[in-house]
């Protein structure tokens, strides 16, 4: 079991990776990636029960994770590499011709850790429900985790999935909503408000946990609380407050960094704020 300080150290390195990958590719999505670095570290280094070397598509005997908001691929790739799914040096190939690290995740190039393509929003929760049903059929007691963006919840299919999961008591499923209130065109509340999201999930017969996604201690607390709620006849939603661009002062809290790569100067500035804890790739 890692300490909070150890997990935080990993998350700082993940943030450095994100900035360097997006700068290296001159494209990509740093904002949501930085905001979810703590969560993804907590999941892959503490919460998920899995063994990277034994990765299989079927995921029998282990927890499965699906990234529904595929554009935050930089944070996922970095965490997967740092966790040992594939060599860390491959992070330098992000978005490069011939790389398995496509702009948006895909299983096409057999990248360990990735089971389904995402990028077109609103679909990952449905896929996760399928995997949850698969686990039940396979007699596998492990859990399925999904991460969705909050802007993504404007997609209608998400609500089909939320309704289905509540109605069908899919209780081996934990869905995390990155509630950063930021999307390409502005604040989620201004573009098309989610209003009282907790009440919405409760109304669809889900259990709801709230947590601070940029506080490692609270991430661990929230994820463990969610896990304890599984197996009780309801799917579990975690509404996770984060700041888009967390950790880099000029990005933090601004929707403008959803999908813009920092230039050389901005990259140097950003990296000066992010501790190199595990060694750059």
């Amino acid at each position: 079991m890692a300490t909070i300080a150890e997990l935080e150290n990993i998350a700082w390195q993940i943030r450095r990776d994100i900035i360097r990958m997006v700068n290296g590719a001159s494209s990509g999505h740093p904002g949501g990636s930085l905001g979810c670095a703590d969560l993804m570290t907590a999941l892959y280094f503490e919460v998920l029960d899995l063994e990277p070397k034994n990765f299989t598509m079927e995921g029998v005997g282990e927890d499965m994770f699906f990234l529904s908001n595929g554009h935050i691929s930089p944070v996922w790739y970095s965490v997967l590499a740092r966790r040992g799914f594939f060599p860390i040096k491959e992070l330098s190939t992000f978005r490069v011709l011939g790389s398995a690290l496509q702009g948006h995740p895909t299983p096409k190039y057999s990248l360990p850790g990735v089971r389904v393509a995402s990028g077109s929003l609103g679909q990952g929760l449905s896929v996760s429900i399928g995997a949850s049903l698969g686990k039940k059929l396979n007699g596998c007691n492990h859990l399925v985790y999904t991460l969705c963006g909050d802007g993504e919840l404007q997609e209608g299919q998400i609500w089909e999935a939320i309704m289905f999961a509540g109605s069908n008591k899919i209780d081996n499923l934990i869905t995390i909503i990155d509630r950063n209130n930021a999307q390409i065109d502005g604040e989620v509340d201004n573009v098309c408000s989610l209003s009282n999201l907790k009440a919405k999930f409760l109304a669809f017969d889900w259990d709801v946990v709230q947590m601070e996604g940029n506080d490692m201690k609270d991430c661990i607390r929230g994820l463990k609380e969610a896990k304890q709620l599984t197996g009780k006849g309801k799917p579990v939603a975690i509404i996770m407050n984060t700041l888009m661009g967390y950790g880099v002062d000029f990005m933090q809290g601004s929707y403008k960094w959803h999908g813009v790569a920092p230039n050389t100067e901005q990259t140097a500035n950003a990296l000066s704020q992010l501790k190199e804890t595990l060694g750059d790739y």
């Binding site: 449905s126 896929v127 399928g130 995997a131 949850s132 049903l133 698969g134 089909e160 999935a161 109605s167």
Partner: peptide
Amino acid sequence: QIGIAEANMIDIAAGLALSGK
């Protein structure tokens, strides 16, 4: 039985397929 939600159905099918179905 997915209900009247074809988009959800297709991706649930994909998730089941990933589980070996």
